[in-house]
Nucleic acid binder design. Structure first.
Lengths: 136, 136
DNA sequence: ATCCTACGATGGACAGAGTCCAAGTCAAGA
DNA sequence: TCTTGACTTGGACTCTGTCCATCGTAGGAT
């Protein structure tokens, strides 16, 4: 079944029903749920799961590198399980929908040394904003 | 004196002591303050200025296009008065410092049509993350 | 210079997102 | 099956931001 569950088990993540449900909710492509959305979906299967547990599990998945946090709008963070293939995000300014996209080129290469100001740069995050087909 | 103040006056922005102080605090280069930081600095000069007023003024400056909102970390938004020259941001993952940078190339051009999924894209925001010289 | 009034400021209540903690529960190894 | 350290719970708390009724004032009118 789920690759994510497999990997977590292999890495010795203590499996509880709560963690399983959170991981299952996040599994898949083009998933960009907020913590509250994850909680709501998890609660459909496990009604008494608490918000704190969801936050804990999400935080651990992020630490493990299995999920990426995405702040698209300065409001709730979204959690993106597609952490293993580098990609960027396309965000609808109206409805907030998020899509994974794969631009050509490497944005890191576009930052010349004299623009790095002594920073040790580790990543470049690109967010494309516009209106999605349903919102035009 | 301040270009920003000049422009605001010309555009008929009703000038109050509070608004003046907020605009003065924001004036300058490489300024990326949070609303609370703006409030703290404004309060040094005008002790009774309220948080609501700062938020109102910031919101209006953003609507007027004189200031850009930047969410670098999913926490407090930062306000960037350098709204007239397009630029991107370099953020220290440790201390949160933000620098304006000017990458070469146009990130919008790096998103091929088949990666636009019917969106009408209006901008591309690039955030470079890494460690600043003081945090390495 | 003074008056008017619509627009702006105030602060306190409220809301949304997230963190923390003490106490209870349970996964998984012995 | 037992044990125990790790996990979960829910409520209190923090931080960021918004809302609103009331009060104050900038700046045009006189």
């Amino acid at each position: 079944m789920s690759d994510l569950l497999e990997r977590l088990r292999e890495r010795g993540w203590r499996m509880t029903s709560q963690r399983r449900v959170v991981a299952e909710v996040l599994d898949g492509d083009h998933v960009h749920l907020t913590a509250d959305e994850v909680h709501a979906r998890a609660a459909q299967r496990l009604p008494e799961i608490s918000r704190a547990t969801v936050y804990n599990a999400l935080g651990e998945l992020v630490s493990l590198g299995e999920v990426k946090e995405v702040s698209t709008d300065g409001r709730a963070k979204r959690y993106d399980p597609n952490a293993h293939r580098p990609h960027q995000h396309l965000v609808c300014s109206a409805c907030g929908t998020v899509r994974d996209v794969h631009p050509t080129g490497n944005p890191l290469a576009d930052l010349p040394p004299d623009q790095r100001f002594g920073f040790t740069i580790s990543e470049a995050e690109v967010t494309y904003r516009g209106l999605c087909p349903s919102c035009v």
